[in-house]
Amino acid sequence: MQKAEQFPELQYRDLDQQREAAELGMWIFLTTELLLFGGLFISYAVYRHTYPEVFAEASRHLDTVIGTVNTGILIISSLGMALAVYGAQTAKRKRLLFGLIAAIVFGTAFMVLKGIEYYHHYLNAEFPGLRFDYSVPDAKGKQVFFFLYFAMTGLHAIHLTIGIVLVCIILYLAYRRRFSPDYYTPVENAVLYWHFVDIIWIFLFPLLYLIDVHK
């Protein structure tokens, strides 16, 4: 199995060229992902400009503690992925497996906490589309805020879920010893994807959770 992967596909001159192409392809894909989120970020900017006070008020309904803890969790999961690459590059199999498992565990923890938050918003009738109280003051701006909150964190959560599934597959392949310092492109690309999802969250966190919390 491992041997077969050592040869480049027909259209490539050598493995290096193939690896470079795969990496370039991944970066271009991340570009499209960035612009996908970009559409939501610009909507956020527009509506925060339209409803500044309402956004600040609505932001106080989010759980800052969970938000902060989740940020930390995601950063640590990213560390796990970084260590996985290191393990793959240096043929340290344990490091590779450990890193991947850490990422899966912390990624799942993030999702669980996120789910708890979502559930609380549902109970508080702050979930536009499912349960939302339109009788509160400034319901419109609040509705837009919570819609954007769910759209942005929801899209992020979808990406993270895909990431977890992806890492599970990588973990299986790593367990079957499919990677070597010569060939670890799938690990590398999964890591790029994971870090990208992480970066999105790093921006979501202050934008959604921390609007004027000092008031």
């Binding site: 990213s78 990208f196 992480d198 970066i199 790093i202």
Partner: peptide
Amino acid sequence: KGSLIILFFMH
């Protein structure tokens, strides 16, 4: 933070 991740974690 994003730059750190891009520069080092994403190589």
